Amino acid sequence: MFLDRRIIIFDLDGTLIDSLGVWSQVDQELTRRLTDGRVELTEDEAGHLRMNAMKRYGEGSDAYLKYMADMKAAFGFPGTPEEIHHQRYELAQEFLRTRVRYQPGAAAVVKALKAAGKTLAVATTTRRRNIETYVRDNLLMRAEAPLDDYFELIVTRDDVAHVKPDPECFMKILEHFGASPAECLMIEDALPGIEGARRVGIDSVVVTERHSETAREALDRAAVRRFESMGEILAAVEAEARG
């Protein structure tokens, strides 16, 4: 399954790295700081506020400014939406440097596949600037497996006109490596990535991640196999290597 493919493509957030909750943690801390502790959001509450705002405002360049204006109106944040957005950005960069790390077992999977001679790529909706933070400043990730040492290509949100489930990021990977879909395998935790890969004929395996559990049945229909953890993937890779 893994070792008979030339190229292994990974999703980033939720698959390779434990980062999906960090944005809610950012908004929790921002709210605590800007209200002097008067408002304490749970991670779930912060996540719902952000997701509802993104549904209202889409993913345009001003979506987060509108979201910050909503937070200001709801909780009495001081400053303009632009000033609040800047504070959120600075706080997010701190969290990306210090809190995000590989999912348990993910670095070992990356190393095992690389040692087996596989070409590794990432297809992500993360911004390039966040990738640069992980590469340059995240000491937790650098200590386990520096992204720039192990991945030959990282396609980000900034590299495409349309994000997953649009297949554009996968088409870029195929073109870059001169590969056919049959030579590739996608490792993903969420449905948009699996659907995007499937649109160009790339098989996917799904790895369980708590933020995607509401789509479990749809994911199992779309993927060729489910793994409950990166540790299970590592065991499968090692079993294939033993023959």
Rank of each mutant, 00 (worst) to 15 (best):
M1N: 07
M1L: 15
R6V: 04
I7V: 15
I8N: 04
T15K: 04
T15L: 08
L16N: 01
L16S: 04
W23T: 12
W23M: 08
D27T: 07
L34R: 05
A46C: 07
H48Y: 04
Y57L: 07
L65G: 11
K66I: 02
K66D: 03
Y67M: 14
A69D: 15
D70N: 09
D70E: 15
M71N: 05
A73F: 00
F77T: 10
E83V: 07
E83L: 10
E83Y: 09
Q87T: 03
R88P: 01
A92E: 13
R97P: 03
T98D: 06
R99F: 06
V100R: 00
V100I: 15
R101V: 03
P104V: 13
P104I: 14
G105Y: 09
V110D: 07
K111F: 15
A112R: 09
L113P: 13
A115Y: 09
T119P: 03
A123T: 05
T124N: 03
T126R: 10
R128H: 09
Y134S: 04
N138P: 04
L140F: 15
E144Y: 07
L147R: 05
D149W: 00
I154S: 03
T156D: 15
T156K: 11
T156P: 13
D158M: 07
V160G: 05
A161G: 06
K164I: 07
D166M: 01
I173P: 04
I173C: 13
E175W: 12
A179E: 10
S180L: 13
E188F: 06
P192R: 01
E195N: 04
G201E: 02
S204V: 09
T208E: 11
R216H: 10
R221L: 14
A223D: 08
G231S: 07
I233L: 01
I233E: 01
A239R: 13
E240S: 02
A241N: 03
G243I: 02
